[in-house]
Design a binder for these strands. Structure first.
Lengths: 140, 140, 140, 140
DNA sequence: GTGGTCTAGACCACT
DNA sequence: GTGGTCTAGACCACG
């Protein structure tokens, strides 16, 4: 478990998202035990306080639960996880579409751009760039 | 020109993006004069130094040119603007697709989600939620 | 660490150069911790924001790295430092030779002027003036 | 007469130096008439006030003389011009040698670097880079 | 304690 | 009037 950190975002937020994605994608299952703060801190070369803060927030969002003396566990409520997944996907979607529209892309362009990108990625994994992004689609 | 500020991101970055979007979308044309620092500061109710910082960065990115004592201007190089548009769109695209994949969505799901969202938005502008985001597509 | 400031150049640029010189000359080694902004500001009797600005630029040039909450460090990439040294020396060299040529000096004159200056400086450190600079070498 | 301007230095100073170099190098001879402010301003695409300021300073330095109603002329005092040449060359020399020393170069290195640069420039005008600037000369 | 950001207000050089 | 710089002082997030 190692992340490349982006300096513009707090580390604890990046770890939070990382863990949430692991849960949502099924890599961490509901009820799974989460490694201890010390363990994670050592693994990720990060101050334990930062990990602590991460879980403090995840607990507030009810994504993880603390069982006193036993450790921390992924919430066992499947509905909660579904909710998180929906929320994260919705955020991504809105951010993307809204962003593209602000750049001057029209809805049909957005769809074809996504199609192309996905297609390119499916075939080879090298030429995701290029294609519809040429930007000549502002005029319509 | 008024922006709603998001507390998680520095103001100067938000203004930067705002201006870049205006340029890329054609609202600000190459060679256009940009209002003075003081003017913008007054308009946006923000400290002039913050605006100054904004343009300092935009200049580093060659989005904007300063003519001493005269004011600031949108770069007259159309190619630069195209490049920025491409870059911003590419970032949005990658962030979206990569994020969705990490959430466990598959490429074909991603495409249909985008299609639906765009369609929903085109018809009415109220019911973008719902649809494919239900998350039952993790199993594949 | 105290600098005499030249009024024609922004302080932050002068400090930048000062630090770059310390690094390039080996006084500051790759990986070394750099004193905190507040510390330097106190030492140099300068506003912390000005120091901050200095490092903001040095970081852009990848001369310095920030570790969040820990402090700033000289880049650990030796190659980067070599590159900076080369660049700074090249700039000095070009500026000098180009300048002398524009003043009408010929290449062989330039070499002998440098030789003399260096020789004079090596013997005593008082009579660098005089010698070849008499300017009778315009006619050629 | 067109200069590429460096944003860090006031334009009027850059023009000043430009003119001084023309005089010192013999391109402008003592007693030569200097084009009018309007003329120069138009030629160089610069605000006439800036040109005005330039000559105001040059006059203070007694490099040019104003003859009322007739125009501006290069000073006819040859000794003055010699003095300027010496001063400018001395400045360049000192700035160069001092700078190189601060970068960790030793006197003998400085001489050979200049020799090489001049030699390279004399032969072809393409490969001035490289050579002694490799910087391995800090250890001695 | 560290850097990052923002505000407020001032001065300066340039056009 | 324009941008550039600097000061003073404050608050915040991070580790």
């Amino acid at each position: 478990m190692s992340i490349e950190f982006d300096n513009n975002l707090p580390i604890y937020l990046q770890i939070m998202n990382h863990i949430k994605r692991q849960i949502v994608s099924g890599l961490l299952q509901p009820g799974d035990k989460i490694p201890s703060v010390r363990e994670l801190a050592a693994e990720m070369q990060i101050n334990p306080n930062t990990i602590q803060r991460t879980f403090q927030e995840l607990e507030r969002e009810e994504v993880v639960e603390t069982k006193r003396g036993l450790g921390r566990y992924v919430t066992s409520e499947g509905s909660k996880i579904m909710a998180i997944k929906k929320e994260m996907a919705g955020d991504l979607l809105h951010q993307f579409i809204h962003g593209m529209q602000e750049l001057g892309f029209k809805n049909k362009d957005i769809v074809s751009i996504v199609k192309e990108a996905v297609a390119a990625e499916t075939e080879s994994s090298s030429n995701q760039k290029g294609g519809q992004l040429d930007g000549n689609n502002t005029e319509g």
